[in-house]
Design a protein around this nucleic acid. Sequence first.
DNA 1: CTCGTTTTGTTCTTCTGTTCACAAACTCCT
DNA 2: AGGAGTTTGTGAACAGAAGAACAAAACGAG
Lengths: 246, 246
Amino acid sequence: MTARTPADGSPHGVASVDGVAGRSSGREIPEATVARLPIYLRALTSLGERGIGTCSSEDLAAATGVNSAKLRKDLSYLGSYGTRGVGYDVDYLRYQIAREIGVTHDWPVVIVGIGNLGHALANYSGFRSRGFRVVALLDAAPERHREAVAGLEVRPFDDLEEIVAAETVAIGVIATPAVAAQDVTDRMVASGISSILNFAPTVLSVPDGVDVRKVDLSIELQILAYHEQRKAVPDIDDNPEQEVIA
Amino acid sequence: MTARTPADGSPHGVASVDGVAGRSSGREIPEATVARLPIYLRALTSLGERGIGTCSSEDLAAATGVNSAKLRKDLSYLGSYGTRGVGYDVDYLRYQIAREIGVTHDWPVVIVGIGNLGHALANYSGFRSRGFRVVALLDAAPERHREAVAGLEVRPFDDLEEIVAAETVAIGVIATPAVAAQDVTDRMVASGISSILNFAPTVLSVPDGVDVRKVDLSIELQILAYHEQRKAVPDIDDNPEQEVIA
DNA sequence: CTCGTTTTGTTCTTCTGTTCACAAACTCCT
DNA sequence: AGGAGTTTGTGAACAGAAGAACAAAACGAG
Ligand SMILES: NC(=O)c1ccc[n+]([C@@H]2O[C@H](COP(=O)([O-])OP(=O)(O)OC[C@H]3O[C@@H](n4cnc5c(N)ncnc54)[C@H](O)[C@@H]3O)[C@@H](O)[C@H]2O)c1
Ligand SMILES: NC(=O)c1ccc[n+]([C@@H]2O[C@H](COP(=O)([O-])OP(=O)(O)OC[C@H]3O[C@@H](n4cnc5c(N)ncnc54)[C@H](O)[C@@H]3O)[C@@H](O)[C@H]2O)c1
C-alpha cells in the first residue's frame, strides 16, 4: 500500500504526540518552523559575510521578513542560543541552525530528467554552496548521453541503482515530464532514495517513510492570479478590464 | 513605507474580519484553500481528458492526495456545485474553479533574467497551457539581446515600462541573481506590476497591495535534509552514517 | 553594588486550518 | 411510491500556528 503525501505542507506521517514528555532528544520542531530555518540560515550567512558579529531577533526579523516574536519562538525550539540584553552571535547561531537542519555536511543528490529545467538545475551554483552535491545527472533519452552539463556527464537512467548505492544518495530531484514522474519515483524509492523534490506537475505516490516536496510553477502563478483578480474586480464577477486603486 | 510579505504563505494583508456576515460577494476563501484549488483544477482537467464526466469527492481526493472532507469544504467555499448522491460534474466544476482562480482568460507575464533558469521558464509549455502568456523576456546584459528564446526575442530590461503599459501586464517573474532582485522588483512595481513570482533567494520589499511569492529550491532541499537527518539518526546528534529502519 | 536599559524566552490568547461525523438531498431499484 | 444506498455540505471538535505581552536575565553607567 502506498501513502500519498498531502498536497500542502506536511510531508511526514510521523506521530507528533510523544507522551513521554519528549525529553530524550528534546526536539519536536513544528513543520512551519522547519520551513523557516533555512531562511534564517541564509540571512545569518549574509550578515556574517558583511562582518556583523551579533544581531538581535529584531534585526534578523527585519532581514527575513518574519515577525520577531515568531522568530524567537522558532529559535527557542533549537535551544537557548541567545543572550538576553545582547542578541545572538551570528556565527554560532548559524552553525546551530545548520546542524539542526543537517547541512553541516554535504548531501549527495541525483537529478533525473536533463531537459530544459534539468539543465538549469545542474548549472545552479546555489545547490553546492548550500550543502548539496550533485553526484549524477540521469536521463532516459540516449541522445542526451553525449552531453556534459556543468562538468558532469549525463548518464543513462538505468545507472540509478548503481549510483545511489555507491554514493548512498538519499535525495533525488525529478525534472522529467509528468507522465514519467511516477515511474522515476518508484525506481528511486526502490533504489533507496527516501526524499524527493518533484518539479513535475503530478501527485506522486510513495510508501511511508519517503518524503516528497513539490515545486509547481503553475500553481504559484495561479495563486497570484487569484489575488490579482481580486484586486482588479472588487465586486463584479468576470470583467478584468477595470483597474481599481484602493 | 514598505511591507514585507511574510516568509511563509499568506501574501495578503487583507483584513479577514467582515463583521457584516459577508454576504455581498459572499466569498472569503481561505489562503490554504486557494493554494489547493489549482491542484483540483489540474486533476479535473486530467479526468476530463480521460473522458470521465462525473466524479465524487472521494475520487478527486484520491487523485490529488487530499483528504476528501477537506476537499469538500474547499469546494463549498466556491458554492454548491455538486449533487448529493452523485458527485461533481467534471467539466462544470473545472470551469467554476478556473473562474474563481481567474484563469478563464490569459494573463500576460514578463520574465526578467534570461539565464539558466530564465531559459527553462521561457521554454516551459505549462505556462501557456494554464492560462499564462509570456509576452516578453527581459535581460540587462546586452549580449543576451541577440538571442531568440522560445520564439521570443530577449529585450533590454529598460523596455519593461513600455511593455507593461502596452500589454497591461500584472504578473512578473524574476529569475535574476539575488543582488539584482530588489532593483528589478522596484522597477516592476513602479511600472504597474502587482504580483511577482521570485526565484532569486532573497527577501523582497514591496509596497502594500503587491503580492510576492517565492520559489526557493535550496529551502525545499534543506527541509528534505532536515527530515532525512531525522530518519537516519533517531537519537544521536551528529552521526549520519547509521541507517535505522523503523 | 545598584539602577535602568535592552533583549531573550515563554505564556496566554487569538486565529486559521484540519478532521470528524451526520443530516439533507439525490438516484436507483423494486 | 417507498426504501436502500450514495454522496454532498456543514457544524462542531480538535490541532497547529501567529501575535501580544511580559518576567527573567544580561549588560553598562554611575
Ligand atoms: N521548464 C520549466 O521551467 C519548468 C517549470 C516548472 C515545471 N516544469 C516541469 O519540469 C519537468 C521538466 O520540464 P522540462 O521543460 O525540462 O522538460 P523537457 O522535456 O525539456 O525535459 C524532460 C527530460 O526528461 C527526460 N525523460 C523523459 N522520460 C524520462 C524517464 N522516464 N526517465 C528519465 N528521464 C526521462 C527527457 O529525455 C528530457 O530530457 C516537466 O514535468 C515540467 O512540467 C518545468
Ligand atoms: N538555475 C537554477 O536552477 C536556479 C534554481 C533556483 C534558484 N535560482 C535562482 O534564480 C536566479 C537565476 O539563476 P540562473 O541560474 O538563471 O542565473 P544566471 O546567472 O544564469 O542568469 C541570470 C540572468 O539575469 C540577468 N540579469 C542580471 N542582472 C539583471 C538585472 N538587473 N536586470 C535584468 N536582468 C539581469 C543576467 O544577465 C543573466 O542573464 C538566481 O537568483 C538563482 O539563485 C536558480
